[in-house]
Design a protein around this nucleic acid. Structure first.
Lengths: 210, 210
DNA sequence: TCATTACACTTAACGGTGTTAAGCAAGTAC
DNA sequence: GTACTTGCTTAACACCGTTAAGTGTAATGA
């Protein structure tokens, strides 16, 4: 009896259709302007149908976030393969991260700019958290490689990794939330940030203390 | 006839009371969980009363944003006075910015992490925009001073200013939105970022291009 | 002193949000 | 052919920002 199989397949298809509609709306209507009702309207089902496929809005967004992180991870893995030299791997990885964020602002917002405080504190475990950790660990390995091969001066691995991530995240954030600011030429901006970051960590631990 | 004066004064007092209540709620309940109705409840007036004092929620938030930026500006001006040496002025200014954001996450969210795209495009002019520009220009002067005095290598002023701002903004953002991440020691983190940033701009234009 | 006017504020409502409970109609199973 | 399962919908709840209309009180002018 292939009935159950067909049903399961159809259920999975509609679930994917909902996710696709949601992502499309996020991209075209903006993060704040997407409601469950609008998603439902787009797929031509009643709003409550979505709740047969997702626990709630957070659950839906979580899956979108997971998809996004998987795409970013794939992009970064490709760069690691293409650039064996640690310094190039680092520079191209940072560039790719920034360009990913700028190119997919809605996806980036969902994955990196949403407030997670309440969610984490509610004890809920998100699918995207796991893969987010994986992407971070991989990046930390890249930083470690730079330190180990002498490209970077010996410094606290965790702090260094987090500083670099924070810096490039900051640029993506501002480019997304302040698109009308008097930004310098984008290529110059990205090049300057990545270049200075790498340069700043070449010299030994210049921790600025008061 | 001091009636009008008294009335004007009372109106101003209630306006300030509303602002204070709003800020208090933002701080204690979190940015997303504050509604006009809750603000009204806190000051023990009906929700619609707020609309006699503010155009809408954006208007209210705009004034809060302005207040916040004025406080930050004051903080940074004090540091400029206390540290005449360009390099110290830069380092302490960056530290102060980060610490301001970490210490007042709700205020920082309102001023620097809110989506402004739709607002700017609607042609509305916000009070906080003007002073935000002023704070940016002052910071750019600090960067220019570092370049002019040879602390930083000669580089594009605008790009350099924006990169440094983006980097410290990124750290504040992540510390706010991801408080449960496995952060390195906060002092080490801040010191590392500020130190590496300054170090990275000492060497001549290391713009990383693909 | 009394009618009028101005003002501060409220009540009621609109259209929107995320979400849940109950119901309906068609397909499957015996 | 009847009972049960499944997929979806309708109706509703409590919230949101916001507006229009109404209310009562205080100030004003005769």
């Amino acid at each position: 009896m292939g009935v159950q199989e067909r049903r399961a397949r159809e259920k999975q298809e509609l679930k994917q259709e909902i996710l696709a509609a949601a992502r499309d709306l996020f991209v075209h209507e903006g993060f704040e302007n997407v409601s469950m009702r609008k998603i439902a309207e787009k797929i031509e089902y009643s709003p409550t149908t979505i709740y047969l496929y997702f626990q709630d809005k957070i659950d839906l967004i979580d899956l979108l976030c997971e998809e996004t992180l998987l795409r970013l991870e794939g992009r970064l893995i490709a760069i690691r393969v293409a650039h064996p030299k640690p310094i190039e791997k680092m520079i191209e990885g940072l560039r790719a991260y920034i360009e990913f964020g700028v190119k997919h602002p809605s996806d980036y917002r969902i994955s990196f700019m949403m407030e997670f405080k309440d969610l984490v504190e509610s004890g809920r475990n998100l699918k995207c958290h796991e893969i987010g950790q994986r992407v971070y660990q991989a990046f930390r390995s890249d930083v470690a490689e730079c330190i180990d091969t002498g490209v970077f001066a010996p410094q606290d691995l965790e702090a260094t990794t987090q500083c670099i991530w924070a810096a490039i995240h900051g640029l993506v954030c501002l480019l997304i939330t302040r698109p009308h600011f008097q930004w310098a030429d984008r290529e110059l901006l990205i090049g300057t940030l990545v270049g200075s970051l790498v340069e700043g960590f070449k010299v030994p631990a210049p921790v600025a203390v008061s």
